[in-house]
Design a protein around this nucleic acid. Structure first.
Lengths: 214, 214
DNA sequence: TGCTTTGTTGACCAACGGGTCAACAAAGCA
DNA sequence: TGCTTTGTTGACCCGTTGGTCAACAAAGCA
């Protein structure tokens, strides 16, 4: 009796496929990725792929949606529930999050989004509503808490919490474009940025450690 | 006598072609751009295209190289020759440059570079050597001048002039992904960033206008 | 054990795209 | 005006790719 030519695994397929697709899309980009190679990487046939995802575009969107969400939710929840003061939170959990992101797999997804968003407007919209809006709101709340505490003076950061993450996006983009040719110590860069911002918005004259960030 | 079917214009062709290719590449991305449509847009035949550019990749690199350089050189020169102090320069010419960039055509090229750099390593290298390295060096020199003047205290900005432009890159990326769905006042954001950094690194206690950036 | 259901295969199609090339015709020249 | 040069055309080649579908076989069931 010959070994079975395949096994039926309806349950596992979607994850198998999105996992393989993530790898292919991030390595080669949307257009350069062939559905056949996604199937091959997932260990199934091309026909089966189309049973689970109607088109290439549908697969693409499913991939982005399924791999982006979890990380951010952690930060959001941390901001809400942390007992730390605003400055302590920024120098602790937030900094940790910010330093990890440009090194994680997520940065490859960021590249995909930058490259493809304008050709998939509904994906951009989804991303905004489910990721960015929440992140910004959480940061804004954190800043506001600091102002109420008297830790921070009112500043432009109230209106533009974006400024807290701009060096994170910058670091991700930098490594995507120039690594490994030109190293950049993104850890130090992001830490330096947070310290500078804190120096600028701290309410009282007494400053934190002001030396060069190493 | 019938009108001539075409005119011979050897001189104009390269610019015609790169101009058309820039438009196509930035609209559709590298892979999705067909050489035939570049030719059509340039008003010539596909065959002629290949007389001037050996391959699609060669055309792509030529496009990036020919449209990126000029803008930055202006900034570099301005830094060297300006009579302004460091702070005045940052709030004047630098800010002007930084605010314009995320709205200019260059931001489309930035998208292309982010999306394609890892598949064209020599292009990334060229871009580093001919654009980024110069820009960073110029900024570093400006900061150093401010420190020597006594305008600024030594700070992490000496090591990471990148922080001056990170919100510019951020703004460019933001508009590329979310416009026109979610407006962001990038002008105000960038201005606010510069003011915050200045607040952080100014040497003496006397501060500039500290109100919320409008 | 045989029948039904349905998860899975792989051959196939039509469109497309990068790249080639023989033929053509505009311009320069004698 | 005829000859030569060379800028230019457009048909063609062939590999690739998104997407389809009839046939197959693994699992469930009576």
């Amino acid at each position: 009796m010959p070994p079975p030519r395949f096994r039926r695994r309806k349950e596992d397929r979607p994850r198998q496929i999105t996992e393989a697709a993530l790898a292919e899309f991030t390595e080669r980009g949307y257009d350069a990725t062939a559905m056949a190679s996604v199937a091959k990487r997932a260990g199934i046939s091309k026909g089966l792929l189309y049973v689970y995802f109607e088109t290439k575009e549908a697969l693409f969107k499913a991939v982005v949606r399924s791999f982006v969400t979890p990380r951010l939710q952690a930060l959001e929840q941390a901001i809400d529930s942390s007992p730390l003061g605003a400055e302590a939170f920024l120098r602790g959990p937030f900094l940790e999050f910010a330093r990890r992101l440009p090194k994680s797999r997520v940065r490859l997804l960021i590249r995909l989004l930058i490259a493809e968003a304008h050709r998939h407007p509904d994906l951009a919209r989804w991303y905004w509503e489910n990721v960015v809006a929440h992140g910004l709101a959480a940061l804004r709340k954190l800043i506001a808490r600091g102002v109420e505490n008297g830790e921070f003076r009112p500043s432009a950061l109230d209106r533009f919490p974006h400024l807290l993450i701009s060096p994170v996006v910058f670091s991700a983009v930098w490594t995507l474009v120039f690594q490994p040719h030109h190293e950049l110590d993104t850890d130090a860069l992001i830490r330096a940025h947070v310290e500078l911002l804190l120096d600028a918005i701290r309410a009282n004259g007494k400053e934190g450690p002001r030396g060069q960030a190493r």
